[in-house]
């Protein structure tokens, strides 16, 4: 057991093993490698657009699940409707592009802010309840927004909005989206890490364990939950905005389906709820597994069943998710211990 001097400001003082020292460099190398992937675009005879697309999808879902983890993991409030924030970001950026011709790369941060403000207001209302009632309120939110957009011709109604391609040739067209989505994913992970190590994050974790105790310890629980909800909306709004022009199309069926809202939950549970690395690992695994099974078995409903079966097995045998279970067993590689 640790007998070394305890420095209270840093709770990771005894983890000075070589794994933890080299972790910074390994993660740096991974990020640098990801940043260099597009350069290979000109080194191969065929282009790498398939792989770039796959990575962009992974970055999108890392952002979704990492952000979701702030309210769902740290604070313990399960939301099945975080896709509304992606929809808000997507529609906002799409409208600004169509009406005012402002590129989504410019409007994306603004879309994030709007998603955050909307999240704050919604949180003030829905976070009055907890448990199943809260979960249902988040599903209701998706249905309400879907009904509104379906019937609002200004936003394209059920038919959706078609967006122009960005005017780049096939070798370049994915690259701006690749870097933008990579940046958003990295920032969202850093944001999540920062919250996890802040006093605010400690307060959120206290709320997830016992709200009454948290309150008596001096945490303004109501405000914390609303802030966490709003904070979890920001990067989802940004990613939703980028996604709209990437797929050159927004419609209620892209964003406002239950699967879109449930996916970050599944990914986070698979990777490890309430850990920083869990949602990242979970998102990458789910997307890779889906891609693999689609390429092997075709895009049938079989994939959905496959994902479901894996999910059930994980939840039954590793309820803490991969990162959580490995930590419990004392086998979490230092590379993934970001808490």
């Amino acid at each position: 057991m640790a007998t070394a001097d305890v420095s209270v400001t840093d709770n990771r003082d005894t983890t000075t093993s070589s794994g933890y020292k080299s972790r910074k460099y390994i993660l740096g190398v991974i990020v640098a490698a990801l940043a260099l992937v597009p350069v290979l675009q000109w080194q191969t005879t065929n282009n790498l657009n398939f792989w770039l697309n796959l990575l962009i999808i992974i970055f999108l879902w890392i952002t979704m699940s990492t952000s979701w983890n702030i309210i769902g993991g740290y604070a313990g409030y399960i939301s099945l409707g975080h896709n509304v924030f992606a929809a808000i970001g997507g529609y906002l950026a799409a409208m600004l592009l169509l009406r005012l011709d402002i590129p989504v790369f410019v409007t994306a941060p603004f879309a994030g802010l709007v998603a955050m403000v909307v999240g704050f207001v919604i949180g003030l209302i829905t976070l009055r309840v907890r448990g199943p009632a809260f979960i249902i309120s988040t599903i209701a939110l998706v249905l309400v927004l879907r009904t509104i957009i379906d019937n609002w011709d200004f936003l394209g109604g059920v038919r959706g909005l078609t967006l122009p391609l960005i005017g780049l040739d096939v070798q370049l067209v994915k690259i701006p989206f690749y870097y933008a989505m990579l940046l958003v994913a990295l920032l969202s992970i850093y944001f999540s890490y920062w919250i996890r190590h802040s006093k605010f994050g400690l307060g959120l974790r206290a709320i997830s364990q016992d709200e009454i105790k948290a309150e008596t310890a001096g945490i303004p629980t109501k405000m914390y939950k609303v802030l966490a909800y709003a904070a979890s909306a920001f990067f989802i709004g940004v990613a939703g905005a980028l996604w709209s022009q990437y797929v050159t199309f927004v419609d209620p069926g892209t964003y406002l389906i239950i699967l879109f809202g449930a996916r970050p939950v599944l990914m986070t549970l698979l990777g490890g709820k309430g850990t920083v690395a869990g949602p990242v690992v979970g998102a990458a695994l789910v997307i890779l597994a889906t891609e693999f099974s689609e390429s092997q078995f075709g895009g049938t409903e079989l994939n959905v069943i496959g994902v479901g079966v894996v999910m059930i097995i994980v939840l039954l045998f590793f309820p803490d998710g991969l990162v959580g279970s490995l930590r419990r067993a004392g086998r979490l590689p230092a590379l993934l211990d970001w808490d």
Partner: peptide, 8 residues
């Protein structure tokens, strides 16, 4: 908070 460490 049973799932937090002593320090936390």
């Amino acid at each position: 908070f049973p799932d937090m460490t002593v320090l936390e």
